[in-house]
Nucleic acid binder design. Structure first.
Lengths: 342, 342
DNA sequence: CTGAAAGCGCTAACAC
DNA sequence: GTGTTAGCGCTTTCAG
């Protein structure tokens, strides 16, 4: 267990100064072809690679980006991790992962993140307190929230960026489809009361219902959790006057609802009740579900997130809020046309 | 955008030396209650926290652990990420995440990892070349492979650790169950030809079949991929003499097979064909599938991984290979008793 | 283009 | 217990 070779060692072997070694490993530094060759040869011999920590200490750029997440049981987020890390890796950054407890404000973890001098932070499905948003801004560490926005949206220039899909508009689409297909007693399962995604989807949904001169039949909260969504479904369908249409704030819960509806309550979907989810996770397309849903377009969301963060890290851009359109994906949990008896 | 306060600044404000500041932030260093109080007060005023990079440079311990993964579409791995990061966080480590392309050897990414002076490496569902395994060992960076073992298993003292479940024994269980329940034309869908999980599960399965004086009816490779598993299923059931029992190397593919069997081929499970998966991912329990499967017991696997790594990082332990038992989970894709006509 | 020298922010001897 | 000092491995002036 020998210790790793240092620039000094390479310099000695190549018979050049240590700074020459540094320069060969610094893109865009001026070194003669001759020295570069010697250094590279010596480096290869020793298996030398620059110590990223020491480099960061002096350059004040760690090339590390923190990614804060929760809800990994919702398959949407693994996809986010996968794509984000790959894109960030390609851009020359490395990802420090933090799992935040669901529903807690991620403040504790954030202090630790900052200790590592990260160049930027991505918060996905995690809430950032305004206080910490400020201290990040003060330190010049850009933050982009993914799929979440801060409470006082729109009020004044926010200091942190966000990338979300058009949740409200997605909610509207769901409402329109359900009504158009002849469902009349329409209920909703919300996600988390304090999550902007859930709030916005619900608002869009109920607003559009109002436009169509209908009212929400009933409402329960599923906390973006599989089991709790099943309980919510049960409660929704416990009374005599059962709903016949259901909008669920995400696919993960919609699938839970579907299982409950079919296996436990012996209801037929889409005949007895129509169901719409949100996200379009891979499972929504699985043969046993074929869930009609509102798609969040992951790729442009990732693109925007990485672009936004990178530009802010290089100081090219100020914080911004980006909204990516949603699209309705019709599969088999909403009927194709209103029942002829209607 | 002010720059972060340094220990120097705190020292000045508290009217003590800079080393006093360092000591108050070093657990187990000797500082009088008096100084400690002054330093803490000053630190709070300025919002000081030690720079982890600078600290690591000198202590030669970064408290960073690298986690290399792929296959995030298999829900087993998001769970692994979630649990591992939480446990590592609790142990005072931070997680640098890398997504490796499926099927490539993760050598490229590993060099970058080592640049960051990580204290340890966990490779989950990713293959490490023996060459790099050696260079990690040389550098004194412990590696534990999660759910994968190196090719030349058993031969001499390996330099890196592994945590796996008893894949072979799991495969045997599957074979026994299928035969016991009267299935006779038994086929298999393998994962990846070069993945130890797939190889071992298959070996256990066919070996046990042999013990029971049966032979594998047919075999296809699904590459641990949803779509390719569906194609494999199609091929398996294309001929005249269809299999009536199917062991699939993981749940992710088993679900794909189930969809294909029921939706496309109009076969009844478990009547026409019995299906067994491997892993027991959350989706296997979903109402629409209720997949009979071999459970990998995640918690003890995580425990072992974290314990192993931590002990090796502190030098308490040499590399080891740990194998966690599997358990059969019966649900609804294998019939309860052999058909009476048999 | 190259080497010498300073120093990033911190910890760890070492004297006192 | 405390301050002083010497680096950790590297980048970056600054002369030459």
């Amino acid at each position: 267990m020998k210790t790793a070779p240092r620039a000094q060692d390479v310099a000695a072997l190549a018979k050049v100064s240590q700074s020459a070694v540094s320069r060969t490993f610094t893109p865009g530094a001026s070194v003669s072809e001759e020295t570069r060759r010697k250094v590279l040869a010596a480096a290869k011999m020793l298996g030398y690679r620059p110590n990223a920590l020491a480099r960061s200490l002096i350059t004040r750029r760690s090339r590390i980006v923190a990614l804060v997440m929760s809800y990994l049981d919702n398959q949407f987020y693994p996809l986010v991790i996968e794509q984000l890390s790959q894109r960030l890796q390609k851009a020359g950054y490395h990802v420090l992962m933090f799992i935040a407890e669901v529903d807690e404000e991620a403040d504790g973890v954030l202090a630790e993140i900052l200790d590592y001098q990260v160049d930027g932070i991505i918060m996905a499905s995690a809430n950032l307190s305004p206080r910490l948003a400020n201290s990040c801004a003060d330190l010049g560490v850009p933050v982009v929230q993914f799929n979440r926005v801060m409470e006082q949206r729109g009020r004044g220039r926010s200091k942190i960026s966000s990338v979300t899909s058009a949740n409200e508009s997605g909610g509207r689409m769901a409402a329109r489809l359900l009504v158009e297909r002849g469902y009349r007693r329409i209920a909703l399962i919300a996600g988390l009361e304090n999550a902007s995604t859930s709030i916005e989807r619900e608002r869009g949904f109920t607003d559009e219902l109002a436009v169509l001169e209908m009212r929400l039949w009933n409402r329960e909260v599923g906390h973006y959790d599989f089991h709790r969504a099943q309980e919510a479904t049960q409660r929704l369908f416990a009374g005599d006057e059962r709903p016949d249409g259901l909008f669920v704030a995400n696919d993960h819960m919609a699938i839970a609802a579907l299982d409950m509806l079919r296996q436990e309550l012996n209801l037929k979907v889409p005949e007895d009740v129509g169901v719409i989810g949100f996200d379009d996770v891979p499972q929504a397309a699985w043969g046993a579900y074929r869930l009609t849903t509102v798609r969040q377009d992951l790729e442009p969301m990732i693109d925007a997130t990485v672009a936004l963060l990178c530009q802010q890290m290089t100081g090219e851009l100020r914080p911004a809020d980006i909204v990516v359109p949603c699209a309705l994906v019709e599969r088999a949990t909403v009927r194709q046309r209103p029942p002829s008896t209607a």
